[in-house]
Every structure is written in C-alpha cells, then in structure tokens.
C-alpha cells in the first residue's frame, strides 16, 4: 500500500483531520437541530403532565403541538415555591440568568417551572459568581402544577426526579384534591434498560399507582413503594394501599423510584399540610 511509505506523520495528520471534520460536522448539525429538539422536549413534558392527570395521548393526538401547549397554559397553573413555601418570584431568577449570559429570547419560551429548573441547574455557578457557599445561596425553589381545567382545581402535580440505575429519571405524580390519593404518575426522561427498567413507562405499571394513598391512616407520609413481585403475595393486607406491583429484573430501577418518590413528596409535605387544612 502506498500509505506505508508516507510514515507516521501522515497517519497523525489524517487522524487529526478526520476528527476535525467529524466534530465540526456534528456540532453544526447539533446547532441547527437544537431548537427543534428543544420544542419536542417541551411538548413531551407537557404531554406527560397531561398523562399524569389522566388525559391520554389518544385524546391529544389530533392536536397540533401549539394547541397542546396552549391547552397546557390555560389548564395548568405553575407555582414556584421557595424554602419557606412562599410563592417565589421568577423575576429574580430571570435577572440572575440574564447575568449568566442568557438572552431575553432564549428565556421567552420558558414558563415559571422550566425557568426554575434552569435556575436550579445553574445555582452552583451563580453561588460561585456571588462568592457564596452553595447552601447559603440555594433558595431551594420547587415547582408545583395546579391542574384547573374548569372552574375548580382538580389535581396537584408534583415533579419527581432522582437516580435510576443508569441515569436520572424524571417524571410527575398527580394527587387528588385531598393531597393523598394518587391520580396518576408518568415518567418522561430516563435511560433505564429497555425491556427491564424501562418498563416503568408502560401503562400497566403506571396504572398500578392510581388510587393508592401516600398517607397512612394517621396522616403520616409513607409514600408508595414498589414491591418485589406482586403485592398480594408479599404485603400484608392492611398495607397494600401503599404498595404497587414490581417489575422483575428491574430491582435497582424500582429502588431508585421508591427513594426519590419519597424524598420529593417529603419536600412538599409541609406545604401540603397547610393546603389540607
């Protein structure tokens, strides 16, 4: 082969050149496609919020993406709460994010909750900029979606997220007005093993949760736990209200879901206590 005579220098140069071409090409494609992908993600999140409150994908099927977003905006109220469960103002977040170099247009599409997510992601960076410790700086914002399709509130939706087996799982759990009965649950972002952990997104599994209660009869938060195997086989009858059937082969995913569901509900519990009264 003729390349054999060209020596090591040629090989290095070729490798470098190839890497350069590939990376430039991919960055270009990524930059061009990013806005569309972001729109898809936004729509997907909204669809999952609807699915958590019991509006199925079929019911939304005929609608244009913009209509779905519009329906979301009219039927959901997004509340952002701070550490002391007071409503937080998003103006502060916006100001800080603009300070980090975000543009007005980039933030225009964000609602209160997604703005808060962005802010929470960047809070370490902001603390560093303000020369403060993370704990001192973190305002502990959390979002709550109030589902109000008509005149009255029908459900409260709590965002849940935490570690699964491979990566972070994100989802929503919707609670009825008593803030005790589960109306629905959905997961929209995960990287669990297809066929095993990824089965948490299957309907039969999510339907398990519907109608279960997160509080025990004494009113203490116990959350809902995924059993190993079927609930009937392993859980005493008086506790079945807080357990759902498990997925075989997905022990670690289920463990993760159990942990972050409890942890996230605990964060909201003080606020829910005030709402229940």
């Amino acid at each position: 082969m003729s390349q054999a005579k060209k020596g090591a220098g040629y090989t290095y140069a070729f490798a470098m050149g190839l890497c350069l071409v590939c990376s430039i090409g991919l960055s270009l494609a990524y930059t061009v496609l990013k806005p569309m992908q972001a729109d898809n993600v936004r729509l997907d999140i909204v669809q999952n919020l609807f699915s958590a409150v019991g509006t199925t994908a079929e019911q939304l099927k005929g609608m244009q993406p913009a209509e779905v977003i519009g329906k979301f905006e009219s039927e959901f109220e997004v509340k952002v709460l701070d550490k002391n469960n007071n409503e937080a103002d998003t103006a502060f977040m916006k100001k800080e994010l603009l300070g980090l170099g975000y543009t007005e247009e980039a933030l225009a599409k964000e609602n209160a909750a997604s703005m808060m997510n962005l802010f929470n992601r960047k809070v370490g960076l902001l603390a560093k900029k303000a020369d403060q410790k993370l704990e001192a700086y973190d305002p502990g914002y959390k979002a709550l979606y109030v589902y109000k399709p008509g005149e009255t509130i029908e459900a409260y939706v709590v965002p849940i997220q935490g570690n699964g087996l491979w990566n972070i799982i994100k989802g929503y759990i919707a609670l009825d007005l008593d803030l005790n009965t589960v109306k629905g649950i959905s997961f929209y972002e995960h990287a669990e093993t297809p066929g095993l952990g990824a089965r948490i997104t299957e309907d039969w599994f999510k339907e398990n949760y519907i109608g279960k209660h997160i509080l025990d009869p004494q009113g203490q938060l116990v959350s809902i736990t995924i059993a190993k195997g079927r609930v009937e086989d392993s859980i005493p009858e008086n506790k079945r209200d807080h357990w759902v059937d498990g997925i075989s082969g997905a022990t670690l995913t289920c463990k993760g879901v159990n942990q972050f569901l409890l942890a996230d509900l605990q964060k909201y519990e003080p606020y829910f206590k005030t709402l229940r009264n």
């Binding site: 490798a15 590939c22 569309m36």
Partner: peptide, 26 residues
C-alpha cells in the same frame, strides 16, 4: 492509513449514527 483504518471507519460510522439520532430527536 492502513494501520488506523478500523478506527477511521468507526469515526465515520459513529458520526453518521449520531447524525441520524439527532435527526430523529428533531
């Protein structure tokens, strides 16, 4: 270059796959 042909192929293939994946996402 013959010595690095496998990794060259792999770079080309993975770039194409990432491209397809990004297109699907969009």
């Amino acid at each position: 270059p013959g010595k690095i042909r496998i990794i060259v192929m792999l770079s080309v293939i993975s770039s194409l796959v990432i491209l397809v994946d990004q297109m699907l996402k969009a």
